[in-house]
Design a binder for these strands. Structure first.
Lengths: 185, 185
DNA sequence: GACTACCTGTACCAGGTGGTACATGTACCA
DNA sequence: TGGTACATGTACCACCTGGTACAGGTAGTC
């Protein structure tokens, strides 16, 4: 992957995150300070470009989870993860994530592989995290699915309303319920 | 609203739910058994059509909550709500909901009002439901936001994977945690 | 029959679409 | 010096886009 291409892809991700994915090659290219000819040259086609953008966004998302410091005390892991995920700097990225998600649900070209791993690929790492948190094995699968849903649902709330305080409070409430749940069952 | 228009709108919602919203007026019209001329005639423009579709989908979603039988025992309300929300017949509608959501996040024309109420308009009714469930007032706001996120997150999971059993288990787990939480705090 | 309101088909338009052909520029390496 | 690989600009293409003009059709009312 050449440098010019990397630069264009970064700029495309950034711009699409801020302005939506519904542009023609020409308007997008102009916004990126290049010509539509160059986008075709580097990515082959419009579909090729969008595919790469989707791949890149998913890659960045996953990085947030895998980069977690495993030496952290288990009870802080979830909070650190959440804080990272909701970092202001990532906000546009998260928004784009849901935009692409929507397009993928509609069967947009080049986004099928996006859907394939969007749930399943996250369950295993989350289950591993839950194990460290002391969640009993019989609850881990459902709990992981639930945790993923909570994260996605609250993230969707955050990119919609921008009400960080309220969303954080809801996450805090979830973690409290989760802990109370362990003690009981 | 004339009958022909209602018929077209219904058909449009149905078709877009199944095949995505990224069509030209012509392909959409052909699929609906009419001509793009008719869509313009009845809805004024493409944007007008999409606006009406979004409005209709949101209206149908909200109906699921407001139609709940208020004489039901509180502990069953949540489950009945969830069962209705995840009804097979509504599946396409839920999928379309997330497609439109994504487009709205990207700033698509005619979808701005969709975003306005998509969180806030749900919080009050959910809080009312939580009150009936016996959630103490000081936790109700966060709990409502959390409940909404869980529903949206698991619904997103459902329309992605179609794995009803796993998603139901996660919801069941959430309700369990919720009950355990009340007893403690 | 005449008038009216709603509906629909045909034909067309200007502008935008993704994609291509071809010529050129630039930089590094032999 | 020439060659080669990457990069870029210009001009063009066939096609599709949303939207419009216009001419009817159909049904009910007076």
């Amino acid at each position: 992957m050449t440098e010019a291409r990397v630069r264009l892809l970064d700029a495309a991700v950034e711009h699409i995150a801020r302005n939506g994915a519904e542009h023609s090659l020409r308007t997008l290219a102009t916004a990126l300070g290049t010509s539509h000819r160059m986008l075709i040259y580097h990515f082959g086609s419009k579909e090729g470009l969008l595919t790469e953008v989707a791949r890149e966004v998913e890659r960045r998302q996953r990085t947030v989870l895998t980069d977690l410091d495993p030496t952290l005390p288990p009870d802080k892991l979830a909070r650190v993860f959440w804080r990272r995920l909701t970092d202001e700097a990532l906000r546009h990225n998260e928004k784009l994530f849901f935009q692409l998600y929507g397009q993928a649900l509609g069967g947009a070209p080049g986004t099928a592989e996006f859907l394939d791993g969007v749930i399943d690929d996250w369950l295993a790492p989350v289950e591993a995290l839950l194990e460290r948190l002391g969640v009993p094995e019989r609850h881990r699968a459902a709990q992981a699915r639930l945790g993923l849903a909570v994260a996605r649902g609250l993230l969707l709330d955050l990119v919609t309303t921008g009400d960080r305080e309220a969303v954080d409070a809801a996450m805090e409430r979830f973690l409290t319920l989760q802990n109370a749940g362990f003690l009981q069952t």
